[in-house]
């Protein structure tokens, strides 16, 4: 079982990210869960969402406290939340930032595999709004191969309909442009 924790701010689509990831895994006939951190929703407040993916039925209903992967959708979150909390040593942290891995490691004491992508810029250019949920999934999938890229694109298409084009472009650009730092 792979467990993923998403950090973002209310309104950025952390929950949607988790849902799309789970739906892509389920579309592949695997098992998955996605759920929010169950708080009152407030735009701009730090929020957490979770996903689990497995090849057999998932029998656990607790929050993810020891994630294998962490996604940080908003660069400013790093200053207020310890996003590495409970992250496995072999885990991957995917961060939306214009800074490179070395700078982030120094600034926030980040260990393990670190993936950086300037999702704010990509989202602004491709979607026209700084909503980074689909963009960040591109970097996550590139770094982890968690789900099939085509199936994930299909989920984005289903979810966003008419406005899916920009999201898919942003997803693909992040896939290509993210930098993986071992």
């Amino acid at each position: 079982m792979v467990e993923i924790r998403f950090h973002g701010r209310g309104g950025q689509g952390a929950v949607t990210s988790a849902e799309l990831l789970a739906q892509a895994a389920i579309a592949q006939d695997r098992y998955a869960q996605a759920f929010p951190s169950f708080g009152p929703e407030r735009r701009g407040a730090p929020v957490v969402a979770f996903a689990r993916i497995d090849n057999k039925p998932i029998r656990v209903r607790t929050v993810v406290s020891k994630p294998d992967n962490v996604i940080v959708l908003d660069p400013s979150i790093l200053r207020i939340v310890n996003t590495s909390l409970g992250l496995a040593e072999s885990g991957v942290q995917v961060v939306n930032s214009s800074k490179n891995a070395a700078t982030l490691r120094k600034e926030f004491d980040l260990k393990g595999k670190l993936v950086t992508v300037n999702a704010n810029r990509i989202a602004a250019e491709e979607i026209g709004r700084v909503i980074t949920n689909t963009t960040m999934l591109g970097a996550l999938v590139k770094a982890t191969g968690l789900v099939d890229v085509d199936l994930l694109v299909e989920q984005i298409q289903n979810r966003f309909g008419r406005i899916a084009g920009g999201n898919i472009k942003a997803f693909k650009r992040a896939f290509d442009e993210c930098v993986i730092d071992e």
Binding site: I26, Y31, A32, Q33, F35, P36, F38, I58
Partner: peptide
Amino acid sequence: GFILSHVIEP
């Protein structure tokens, strides 16, 4: 509530 009602699963 929440641990089922708000969860996406197959």
